[in-house]
Computed example of a mutant assay.
Amino acid sequence: MSIQLDIPVLFILFNRPRHARRVFDQIRLVQPLDLYVAIDGPRSDRPDDSKQIAECLALLDGIDWPCQVHRLVRNQNLGCKRAVSTAINWFFNQVEMGIILEDDCLPDVTFFSFCRENLLHHQHNPGVMHITGVNFQHGQWHGDGSYFYSKICHVWGWASWRRAWQHYDVEITTYPEFRRQKLVSTLFSDPKVQQYWTEAFDGVFNGQIDTWDYQWCYAIWIHYGLCICPNQNLISNIGFDQDATHTKTDAESTGNNPLQPLTELRHPQFFIENRQATEYSLNKFFRKVATIRQRMDNITTKTGLKTMKKTFKKHLLP
């Protein structure tokens, strides 16, 4: 970009300064006028956290462009669910639209212009609730534009609007009625996909999964929302390591994917979900957990509960 980015950016940090520095260097290239920085507090049982958090915050000393910096620095650790969801709440309480990057989501520089154009283009289209930067279609190009519409909500580098985020409920309080009416069957026809999402939502609602993103999927789906997905990959997750909260291993080969810069942005002619793309993602990522319900039924010990949590975390959204 030849001029400063006029769309606010939320940069969510924790304890990985090495990854955060690479992401920050990409943010520096577009010089956002407004940068919101949220960082969770140190964990009581991890003495290195305080030092690493301080190193992350020190990155802000490298802001060498005209920029309004807004900070949300936690003194105590809230964990993934609370830290991220409250940071996004804080962000959208102050801005109408914006771009969200976590510390391990490395963007191509054209990711920012892709988000900016679509945020403005779809600003008053309530049917679009989410813009993602990743592409996991493995070379398949969908439709006649630079992006397609899908139910699938990837959160590794994304953008949205206050009008959409207002529907978010971290506790998914309406879920019991959604489950009673078996409404997941109206979203997905494949029983294994239905089972995957039912068990994921069960885990979130019952407090057995410490995450925030399944709830965002739920909010989008119960409000008839669609997501914008690029036909080229604009985000590479660089965080698959033992320091990660959820993505310690990369069984699905979704991390460290090469970036594919956009050379132009063409809007699709029709505002219609690309079901072929949705089905591809569902079949590849969201229909593989078939035995979690039985494992939950057999849990009788604290050790068993920890095992179940690890199983869920392994299958969190890419």
Rank of each mutant, 00 (worst) to 15 (best):
S2W: 03
Q4P: 08
D6A: 08
V9Q: 07
V9K: 10
F11S: 12
I12M: 14
F14R: 13
R16A: 15
V23S: 06
D25T: 07
Q26R: 12
P32M: 05
P32R: 05
L35F: 03
I39E: 09
D40G: 02
S44I: 01
D48G: 06
K51D: 11
Q52K: 13
Q52L: 13
C56K: 05
L57F: 01
A58Q: 13
L60H: 06
I63G: 13
I63S: 14
I63L: 09
Q68K: 08
V69T: 14
N75H: 05
L78G: 13
C80D: 15
K81E: 08
V84K: 13
S85E: 07
A87F: 01
N93C: 07
Q94P: 02
V95K: 09
G98Y: 01
L101E: 14
D103E: 15
D103T: 02
D108E: 14
F112R: 03
S113H: 04
C115A: 10
R116L: 07
E117F: 01
N118Q: 04
N118K: 05
L119W: 02
L120Y: 06
H121W: 02
Q123M: 10
G127V: 01
M129R: 12
M129C: 10
T132I: 01
H138K: 06
W141R: 13
H142N: 14
I152E: 12
C153K: 02
W156I: 05
G157Q: 05
W158I: 03
R163C: 06
Y168T: 04
D169K: 00
D169F: 00
V170M: 10
Y175F: 11
Q181I: 00
L183C: 11
L187F: 04
K192H: 09
Y196F: 15
D202P: 04
G203W: 01
G203P: 01
G207S: 01
Q208S: 07
I209L: 10
W212S: 09
Y214V: 06
Y214E: 09
C217N: 15
Y218K: 05
Y218N: 07
W221Q: 12
I222P: 10
Y224F: 03
L226K: 12
I228T: 04
N231R: 04
N231G: 09
Q232L: 05
N237T: 02
N237F: 07
I238Y: 12
F240R: 02
D241S: 13
T249K: 03
E252C: 08
T254G: 11
N256T: 06
N256E: 14
N257A: 10
N257V: 03
P258N: 12
Q260A: 08
Q260D: 12
Q260Y: 02
L262I: 05
E264W: 00
L265A: 10
R266Y: 00
R266K: 09
H267S: 10
P268Y: 03
Q269A: 14
F270S: 15
F271W: 04
N274F: 03
K284C: 06
F286A: 11
K288M: 06
V289L: 11
I292T: 13
I292M: 12
I292Y: 10
Q294H: 09
M296W: 03
D297S: 11
I299W: 01
I299H: 02
T303K: 14
K309R: 14
K313S: 11
K313I: 05
K314M: 11
H315E: 08
L316Y: 03
